[in-house]
Amino acid sequence: MNAKKSLGQNFLQDRSAVEHIAGLVPEGSPLVLEIGPGRGALTHDLARRARTFCLLEKDDALFPIIRGMIGGTNHPSFFPFHGDALEFDFERLWREPGLPPDTPLVVAANLPYNVASQILFRLLDLHRRIPRMALMFQKEVGLRLAALPGTKQYGNITVAAQNNYRVSIELVLKPGAFRPAPKVDSVVALFDRRERALACAGGADELARFHRLVQACFQHRRKTIENSLLIEGARIPFPGLGTREGVARALSAAGIDPRTRAETLPPERFGALLTVLEAARMKGDGKA
């Protein structure tokens, strides 16, 4: 079956890569999800490591094929889902198998590169329930995820990912590892959850505000963080960022030099700024 460009499909065919990726999923994992199994290169290897195995496939033609592939192995607890990872109700992964909501989920995926970042942000929202992920990205995105402060790859997505996970590049794959071959190299990134968040440990609403704050700080990479926040302040849900005085006060309280650029700050500094702005938001006086 031919790959569909509209779905960003590039099917993995390198057996050594398959074994490496599957090996990142602990044997006997209580719940494993594969997103976008495609032709099933990874699927059998992942299923063997899972007590409950779920897959999520968007492609109308591939879904019945992959469902039959695993269904025919008599896996004791197999749940195939037909849908889009950008819209899927992930609660179904626990609800439909009848698993306790605190059952840890391991995710493995060769993500479609055209929507990989959007899917990642949805998974990051579930960090309390996902201790490990092995995800494939185009190399440029993968390097950004694992980047260090002060490097050109370091940015908004880095801080978002590293807030709750240690991110490492486990494997680099050349285009020939796929059919059809993409035009770029690919990487497998391993996400291991931290014991505690580096910057934001709040709930879903606070995490969403944190992501918007960090995005605003990186929106104008050539500008200082003070000027970036002045430009973007009206679009962030925090009071006091509409004036230079308010921005300067918030940065000072967070221990951040206003002349600094966002790419030099570790995630913890963004966390300090969030703490200051959250306190001002709760007081409702617009003063950090």
Rank of each mutant, 00 (worst) to 15 (best):
M1A: 13
N2E: 14
K5F: 07
S6E: 14
L7Q: 08
L7K: 01
L12T: 11
Q13G: 12
D14P: 02
R15E: 15
L24W: 12
S29H: 01
L33W: 00
I35H: 01
L42Y: 13
A47P: 13
R51S: 05
L55M: 14
D60Y: 05
L62D: 10
I70Y: 03
I70Q: 04
G71F: 02
F78L: 02
H82M: 00
G83N: 03
D89I: 12
R92W: 08
R95Y: 03
R95W: 01
L99W: 02
P104M: 13
V106Y: 06
N114P: 09
Q118L: 14
L120P: 02
L124E: 06
D125E: 15
L126N: 01
I130V: 15
M136W: 09
F137N: 09
E140V: 12
G142A: 06
L148P: 00
L148K: 14
P149W: 00
G150C: 10
K152W: 04
Q153M: 07
G155S: 11
N156G: 12
I157A: 06
I157P: 01
T158M: 07
Q162D: 11
V172E: 15
A177E: 00
R179G: 04
R179T: 15
P180A: 06
P180F: 04
F191N: 09
A197L: 10
G202D: 04
D205M: 08
D205G: 03
L207E: 10
A208R: 13
F210M: 08
F218Q: 06
Q219C: 12
H220K: 13
E226V: 11
E226Y: 06
E232H: 03
E232C: 14
G233D: 10
R235Y: 09
G240Q: 10
G246N: 11
L251A: 14
A253W: 03
A254L: 07
D257V: 09
P258H: 10
P267I: 05
G271I: 01
L273I: 13
T275G: 13
V276N: 06
V276R: 10
E278Y: 05
M282H: 11
K283A: 15
G284W: 01
D285N: 15
D285A: 05
A288Y: 02
A288R: 03
